[in-house]
Computed example of a mutant assay.
Amino acid sequence: MDIAWDFFSSPMNLAEITPQDMTFDVTSPNMVNAKMYPGLIITYEISPLFGIKLNWVTEITHVKDKEYFIDEQRFGPFAFWHHQHHFEKADGGVVMHDTLHYSIGWGPIGAMANALIVNNKINEIFNFRYQKVEELFGKF
């Protein structure tokens, strides 16, 4: 559990659990040895769809050591993004639960884009993440 928590506590490890085709890059200065804490602002450059590069800024709003943390988008592609990461010790590894609430905005056009593209892409990202967590920290 400690190893998994330490891994997720470093913003620099986010790229390892993000699909490579998203070209995820942390752009915040001085993040190499940074550890997560409430109030931490992290900036990224990411290509979530069609290779289009976007800037994304998140804030870590809550942290309970070795149990959970929450990130919220401050600037980026979503109208709203609130992501909870929960961790539990389990036989042979770590159980990770994500709870995500988001909206892409844009009314009916956004709802259609979400149904046709965005929701599927988010599911792909989380499936990739769960596979990587299993590879790194054991089966859950």
Rank of each mutant, 00 (worst) to 15 (best):
W81I: 04
V118Q: 07
Y37M: 01
A111L: 13
I41G: 00
L49M: 13
V32F: 10
L54I: 11
F7C: 09
P48G: 04
H82N: 08
V26D: 03
H97K: 13
F75P: 00
T61R: 01
N123F: 09
M36P: 01
H86P: 00
I117G: 01
G110F: 11
P29L: 05
S28G: 06
I17Y: 08
M36G: 07
K89H: 13
M1Q: 15
Q84N: 09
D98I: 00
E134S: 14
H97A: 00
E134F: 01
G93M: 09
R74T: 05
A4Q: 11
Y68L: 06
Y130W: 14
S103A: 10
G92Q: 05
L100S: 02
H62M: 08
E59N: 03
L116M: 15
M96K: 05
L116T: 07
N123C: 08
I70M: 09
E72Q: 12
D2V: 11
N30S: 10
F140E: 08
N120H: 14
E135C: 01
D71K: 00
D25S: 07
I46H: 09
P19H: 08
N119H: 14
D91T: 15
G105A: 13
M31E: 12
L136D: 14
Y44I: 04
I117S: 02
A111F: 12
Y130F: 12
P77H: 09
Y130D: 07
S9V: 01
G51S: 08
E45F: 01
N55M: 10
F7Q: 08
K89M: 13
V63A: 03
V26C: 05
A115H: 11
A115Y: 10
A79M: 12
N127T: 15
R129T: 04
L136A: 08
M1I: 13
T18E: 07
G51E: 12
H83R: 01
K53R: 15
L116I: 08
P29E: 15
F24E: 08
A34R: 13
W5P: 02
G107Y: 06
P11M: 04
Y130P: 02
S9K: 07
D91I: 15
F140L: 11
S10K: 13
S47T: 13
